[in-house]
Design a protein around this nucleic acid. Structure first.
Lengths: 337, 337
DNA sequence: CTGAAAGCGCTTACAG
DNA sequence: CTGAAAGCGCTTACAG
């Protein structure tokens, strides 16, 4: 390993001067700078981040919480994998690296964050099992943003789920549907997406004087295809007269499609389905799924920008920021007017 | 921030003694150790990894290359997202954190690896655009493994694609198919999966004296649904008498299903389809897709074990290690005998 | 414009 | 069993 002292010796300058040349800091003679840079290059010098961090108290590290519990599929998540991807791209462009914060028996998120001295943390996909852990993240003086879990005091950038839920109901009604089933995900105090979609949905129905009948609500055990399949089976037992379903995720919607096929319900002729997420294959199901696309890139970019901003001391909101979903009209909902 | 000197002052011991107590090293009186630990706890001491790294020359960091080019979906990859997930789990259990190595204009993989002083690197999902970069990883004296790109001298843990390809042909023939289309992915010298599947496929056909007719081969532009759709369209123009398709990925297979539906080919009645990967939704397509499941957890675990082993100086193979794929028989292939 | 000195927080021999 | 000294590689005031 070659250090700045080696370069100092080789060029005849002192270590601080080499440091300045390398960092483009201070005022050096142009010839001094170029001579040092040239020698550094020749000797294959690479800075040592640990030494630099120790001296500057900067690590250029951002801690990311990504534990994907609901699908138990890790990074293979229809929405948050995209958020993570774009988030990484953004912070790397600003010179940061991400490091995953984990939460084992011997380490808390907080301890991990402080051990690695991350300069900021982003909750990209949280396991609500670790909620207590996450609470501790707030108030430790380290800038934080979230793209899913809602932690008091932390800026959370999410889709405008309520508005999308409202739009879902509006759309289904505009197509003549009145007996609409709502398939929600497991309720979670800290992961409000599903609940917010439900609230928007109900709001529209209230507004048009046709309040949602609770018996048309069914909660899935998980955000998965089998979760949707099973829930729809339950719901269908109660209401075989349903003409449309709003599912809070495309995977759940696919579960509905499967059960429908199994028992001979034709989609969309007998039953319309509206999903959420625009999964990687939703464009290719039969029928092609009408759904809402979450702006995962927009969420990620805003989260990165805000975090970076907060990290240089600028204030950011401590509440929610809602980004619009894009409605993607395809073939799984028909008009029955 | 509280340092070991603060603890030293508080307890009356010296910094080295505090260090030893904290690290459980050397011989200390039990009462000394407990007193120090207690004070550290009370004062909320957290070690500083930069300082420790500088002193010990250990970072407990593993560099991961994950750039997912083929799908342009980042972490949302049917196979490698799972590998990444399990890999992370394994190395974290061993006390390491992962950090993504990137390759911008101003930074090479190698420079990034050495800047962060990673103790090992894992190529989980490589962009062959950066092949030249990756070549430089070998021979820099840092242990390395790969779970997809094949770099000379680096241990690569992958599915036994050739055997699976062989099995695919064998299975299709056993069901009476003779006119079989092969849908490959883009060829890539460093990403041999698709080619290996093809080789195994051809080998079986050679062995039974029915060599594969090249005109039944069609290459997709990408590992995606539209890639498969378009390629099948081409192939079908040449051979409308095909009775079965082997697609090198489930997404490609779904492309075939789509185009089939579009032009009225019924699956599996008119056309059988065999896929690869067991995508998250393949169990739920109509018909349910018969496919090969790659053992992404096994690959990840072995890659982590080997890398960790290599990092403590133990030798590991410098060639390929092949893990078997699991054949998942579902409903998309029928017997036409 | 350049350098001597000190320090970042921790650990490693080496004494005692 | 405990501690004084030195060092890891870099940077930051401060002189000159």
């Amino acid at each position: 390993m070659v250090t700045i002292y080696d370069i100092a010796k080789a060029t005849g300058y002192s270590a601080p001067t080499v440091s300045k040349a390398l960092n483009g800091a201070g005022h050096l003679l142009e010839q001094t700078r170029t001579a040092i840079l040239k020698t550094a290059e020749e000797m294959g010098y690479e800075p040592n981040s640990a030494a630099r961090s120790l001296a500057t108290k900067r690590t250029y590290l951002i801690g990311v919480i990504y534990d994907d519990p609901s699908m138990q599929r890790g990074f293979n998540h229809p929405v948050f994998s995209g958020v993570l991807n774009k988030f990484r791209e953004n912070v790397e462009a600003a010179g940061y690296d991400i490091i995953f914060l984990s939460c084992h028996t011997k380490l808390s998120y907080k301890a991990h964050a402080s051990f690695r001295a991350v300069e900021g943390v982003a909750i990209i996909n949280a396991d609500s099992k670790f909620n207590k852990e996450m609470q501790t993240l707030n108030g430790i003086g380290i800038p934080c943003v979230s793209t899913n879990a809602s932690i008091p005091g932390i800026c959370t950038i999410v889709s405008d789920n309520k508005k999308a839920g409202y739009k879902a109901a509006e759309y289904l009604f505009s197509k003549g549907h009145k007996k609409i089933g709502f398939l929600s995900a497991p309720n979670d105090e800290y992961l409000p997406a599903s609940k917010e979609r439900y609230e928007g949905f109900c709001q529209y129905m209230d507004e048009i004087g046709h309040p949602f009948d609770q018996s048309y609500y069914q909660q899935c055990e998980s955000w998965t295809v089998p979760g949707g399949q099973k829930a729809f089976e339950e719901l269908y037992k109660r209401h075989s007269d349903i003409t449309a379903i709003f599912a809070v995720s495309d995977l759940i919607a696919m579960g509905v499609m499967n059960y429908s096929r199994e028992i001979g319900i034709e989609i969309p002729q007998d039953l319309s389905i509206l999903g959420f997420d625009d999964d990687r294959v939703s464009e290719y199901t039969t029928p092609r799924l009408t759904t809402f696309r979450q702006d995962s890139e927009g969420i990620a970019t805003l989260a990165a920008d805000l975090l970076l901003q907060h990290m240089v001391g600028l204030p950011i909101p401590s509440k929610f920021i809602h980004l619009p979903c894009e409605f993607i009209e395809r073939d799984s909902v028909i008009s029955i007017k």
